[in-house]
Nucleic acid binder design. Structure first.
Lengths: 112, 112
DNA sequence: CGCTATATATAGCAATGCTACGTATGGAGG
DNA sequence: CCTCCATACGTAGCATTGCTATATATAGCG
C-alpha cells in the first residue's frame, strides 16, 4: 500500500475503530490491522499523534488506566465524534465513487 | 469533497484521463470534471505541476502546438505510463477495499 | 472595451502521515 | 539471569503532496 494514499482518510478509520466500544491506542492500531487483513498497519508514530489530534478536536475522549503493569490511554467516541464519523463515511462514499469513475475501474472490490 | 482526500491518488486519475487518447492539460482537467460529475474539479495549480511531474517521470510525453491562437501542450501515455496506470488501479482497489472494510461502510457506491 | 473561457505557469504554503528515536513493563526462552 | 519480543506510549523533524494566489496571453461575446 502506497504510504501517501492514506492521507486525509486516517481520522475516519480511527473513529470507525472506536465505534463498537472504547479501545486504547495500541488496540486501535491492532483492530485496524485486523479488519483490513494487514493492509493498513499503521506505525505508532502515526497512530498516537492522530489520536491526540482527535482528542483535542473533541471527537474522542481518553482516560488513563494501568492494566498488567502497563499504562494505557483508552479512548471513546464523543457525540461529535459519531457525527464526524458519519460525515467521514459519506465523504468516503463520494470520494470513492468519483475516483472509481475517473479511474475507469468499473469493478468494485469484493465486499468480503 | 475534502481537499486532502485526493492526496496520493492524483497521478492515477491523470493517467486514466489520458488512456483513451492524447489530451492537453486543460482538457485533462475538464475530462476529470466531467467523468466525476463535478466532484473532482482540480485547480490549475494542481493539474499543471502534476503533469510536469508525470512527464519528468516519463509516464507521459508532451508536445506543444497552437490551436486557435492558443498554445497547448498535449500529453500522451508512454508505455511506462500504461504500466503505472494499471498499478494505480490495482493499488486503488486494494486501498478502497481496506478503507471500506475499516470504515465498516458495507455498501459500495452505485456504479452510476 | 471589459468580461469570461481557454490555456499555461510558478512560488510559497498548509496539512498530513512517516521515520527514527526514546521510555517503560511483562513474559518467554535460552 | 538475561536477552528478546510484544505491549504501550510519546515526540521532533522530515518529505510529500496538493492548494492558494498570482501572473501571462489569446479569442470571442455583449
Amino acid at each position: 500500500m502506497r504510504a501517501e494514499a492514506l492521507k486525509g482518510h486516517l481520522d475516519g478509520l480511527l473513529l470507525a475503530a472506536l465505534e463498537d466500544g472504547p479501545l486504547h491506542g495500541y488496540a486501535v492500531k491492532e483492530a485496524l490491522r485486523e479488519t483490513t487483513e494487514g493492509r493498513i498497519d499503521l506505525p505508532t508514530g502515526t497512530v498516537y499523534p492522530a489520536l491526540h489530534r482527535l482528542e483535542r478536536a473533541d471527537l474522542i475522549t481518553g482516560s488513563w488506566s494501568v492494566v498488567g503493569g502497563r499504562r494505557r490511554r483508552t479512548y471513546e467516541l464523543t457525540a461529535a465524534g459519531r457525527t464526524a464519523l458519519s460525515g467521514e463515511r459519506a465523504g468516503w462514499q463520494e470520494f470513492a465513487t468519483a475516483v472509481t469513475a475517473a479511474l475507469g475501474a468499473r469493478q468494485w472490490p469484493a465486499t468480503t
